[in-house]
Nucleic acid binder design. Structure first.
Lengths: 205, 205, 205, 205
DNA sequence: TATGAATGAGCGTTCATTCAT
DNA sequence: GATGAATGAACGCTCATTCAT
C-alpha cells in the first residue's frame, strides 16, 4: 500500500499481487469449468473475486465475452502443455501415457463439447468461432504428433484426425463414475495405462 | 372443449389424442436434448405443448422432476434399442457397426455427460441417482455383449466395462465439427466404419 | 359485473373492483404523463399499483409496450372528448372556447412532442407508428371542425391543418410558468378567453 | 502526449485547441438537444469528446450541473441571436419572418418544455431556477420588441407576454411530422410565411 | 383436468459518482 | 489536468413456483 524505495515515477499500483482482470479471468475459468456457462452468474464470479459485479463489467463487457475469453485462454494454455509433453524425445506411447496422466489428474474435467452446446444460444457467431478455432488448434497438436509418428513408421498409416479425437474422447472415460460414485478403475495410474493400451491395441487385441 | 353428440360413457380423450402427460414428456425430452437443462424454461415446454405452464406443473412437480423423468425414460428407450441391436445373431463387429450407425444417424447427439454436469446443481441427490442408474443400465447392455463375446472367444479377454465406455465415447467423435463446420468424415457410412475399425484394431493396428 | 342469481358455474374472481390490467394502465398513464418515459420505472408503476414488477410484466411484455398502450389509449379517449365538444351545435368560437377550457383545466399537461422525442430511441418502429397515428387522428377531429366551418363560411378559407396544430400549440402557452412560478394569466377563465381570442384575431387585430 | 521541441514556457494547449471544458460543453449541448437528458450518459459525452468520464467530472461536478450549464449557455446564445434579429431596422413582420426562418432552419428543434419536464426530477431547485430565468430572458427579448411595436402603433395594444409565447409556440408547428413522416408544409420558406401570417392575422382573417 | 393470475428471487447490464494517482 | 479502477444502486426482464378456481 506504500512504496519504500524509488518513490518517483509511475509505479502505478505495484505491490498488488495480481491484477484484478487476471483474478477475474482465473476465477471465472474455474467456475465455468466446474458448473457450466448458464449456472454461473456474474455475481458468483464477482463475489468469489471479492469485487462487485460492476467491476467485472468494467473488464468484460458481457458475460459471453468473459466466458469466451476464459475458455480460449484456457485452451491456449492446454495446447501449450500438450505441445510440451508431445515434444519430448520419447516413444510415442510413452508420450501419450504422460499426456493421459496429466489430463486425468486434473481435478476438473474439461467437457468442451458440453460447453459448446450450452453456450451455443448465448454466444455470438464470432465468439463461437473463436472457441472453435482454439479447440481445433488443440487437436492439431496431437494430430501432428501422430502424423510424425506415421512418417517415421512408428505406427501404421491411418487417419490422424480420427486418431487425435479418438484419444481425447477415450480420456473422458476416466471421468466416469457409476451410480455408486465408483470410477471404472481404482487408481489413476492403472486407469491411464489401461486407456492408453486400449487406444493402442483396440478391442480385438 | 365439449362434445356435442354421443356424450355418454367414453374415454376422456377425444379421438385418441396422446394423453397430455405424454405430450409434455415428449416435447420436454426433445427440448432438453436440443438446448440443455438451464436454457429450456417451463414456459417453453408449455407453449410447445399448447398448454399453460400450470398444466405442466400439474403433471410434474418441478422442472427437475420433468427433466429427470424425460432423461430416464429416454435412456430406458435407448437401452431397449441397444439391446435389440446387440441381440442379433451376427458377429460382434457387425452388431457394433449397426449400433454405431443407429447412434450416428440420430439427429440430436445425446451428451449425457454435459447434461449431468449442467443439472448437477439443480437436481436432488435422488434425481441424480435415478439418472445415474439409468445410464449405468445402458452401458451394462453393451458390457454384457462384450462379456459374452469374450466367453465365446470372439474377442480376447479384457476389461468389458472399459470396452463399453470406450465404444460410446468413440462414437462422440462422429459429432465433431471443426471451425469450418466440417465433420471429420464426409459421410455417415464412412464415419461409422472407420470408428468401429479404430475401436476394433486400435492405433497400432 | 356480478351475477346475483345463478351462483353455479365459473364465477371467476368477482368482487374485484377493477381488473388489475386496467389499474396498471391507469397508473402507468398518470406516471408517464407526470414524469416522462425514462424516469418512470416498471417498479414505480408496480408499487403504485400495489403489485409486483412481475405482475406488470404479466400484462405487458415490455416497458415500451406499456408506454405505447398507455399513450394510445389516452389519445383515443382525448379524441373522443374533443369530438364531443366540437360536435355541439354552437358557433365555432364557442366550441373552441370550451375545448380550450377543458384542456387547460386538466391537471397534467400532455406534452406529446416531448414524449415522442424521449421515447424515440426506446420504442420500436411499429410502436412509434401507433403513437403517431393516434396523434394524427386527434388533430384530424379538430381539422375537420375547421373544414366544416370554412365550408359554411363561418371562417375564411385557409389551411385547416395549420389551423388545427396552431390551436393546440397555442394552448400550451397556458401551461407556462415563469421563474417565479407565475403563469401568464391569473385565472384559467381569462387565460382561455385571451388565448382563443388571439387564435381568432391574430397579433395585428 | 508530450512536446518534443520548444519545451519551455508556453500555454498548455498545443495549437490553440479548444479548451477541454468548452469541448465538453459543446458536445453535451448537442447530445442533450438531440436525445434528451435521461438518455445521454456521462460516458456518451466523454466518448464523443475523446476524454474519460473522470475528465468530464473534473469540470462538472454532476450530470445535472453539466446539463444546466449546457442549457443555460445555449439559451443565452439564442437570446443574443434573437436580439440581433429583432433589433434590425425593418417592419416588425419582416423581423418576425427572419426570426421564424432562423428557428425553423435549425436542425435540432429545441423543445425546452420537454427538457424542463424530463429534468424536473433530477435537477436541484437552484438549477431549475437558473434554467427558468434563462428561458424567461429569451422570451423577454421578443416581448420587448412587441411592446415597442405597440408603442409605435405598428400593432394594436395587446398582451405582449401572450404575444411572445404565442409566437414561439406557433413555431413548434413547423416541426410536426405526421405518421407518414410528412411535415405540414413542403418547404421551410412556405412554412415560415404561413406560420407568421397566421400569427399576424389569426384564424378569422 | 387445466388454467389465469400473481409473486419472490435473481440475472445481466448500465450508470452516476468517487478517489488515488 | 486527466485518468483508470471501482462501486452502489437501480433497472428491465425472466422464471420456477404457487394457488384459487
Amino acid at each position: 500500500m506504500q512504496q519504500e524505495h524509488r518513490p518517483l515515477g509511475r509505479p502505478r499500483q505495484d505491490h498488488k499481487e495480481k491484477p484484478t482482470k487476471n483474478v477475474i479471468l482465473d476465477v471465472a475459468t474455474r467456475l465455468f469449468l466446474e458448473q457450466g456457462y448458464q449456472v454461473v452468474s456474474m455475481d458468483d464470479v464477482a463475489k468469489k473475486c471479492g469485487v462487485t459485479k460492476a467491476t467485472v463489467y468494467y473488464y468484460y463487457k458481457t458475460k459471453a465475452d468473459l466466458f469466451t475469453d476464459a475458455m480460449v485462454q484456457m485452451m491456449i494454455r492446454i495446447r501449450k502443455r500438450i505441445f510440451d509433453i508431445l515434444s519430448a524425445d520419447k516413444p510415442l506411447k510413452d508420450r501419450l501415457l504422460e499426456f493421459a496422466k496429466a489430463h486425468l489428474q486434473a481435478t476438473v474435467d474439461i467437457d468442451l463439447k458440453g460447453f459448446m452446446k450450452e453456450a451455443k444460444t448465448s454466444l455470438s457467431k464470432d465468439q463461437l468461432q473463436q472457441m472453435k478455432e482454439a479447440e481445433d488448434k488443440m487437436y492439431e497438436v496431437l494430430e501432428q504428433a501422430l502424423i510424425n509418428a506415421m512418417e517415421k513408421g512408428d505406427i501404421p498409416q491411418g487417419h490422424p484426425k480420427l486418431g487425435a479425437h479418438a484419444f481425447v474422447s477415450l480420456l473422458t472415460v476416466g471421468n466416469y463414475k457409476d451410480s455408486d460414485q465408483k470410477p471404472i478403475f481404482p487408481s489413476i495410474d492403472e486407469m491411464t495405462e489401461q486407456i492408453v493400451d486400449f487406444y493402442w491395441n483396440g478391442l480385438a487385441k
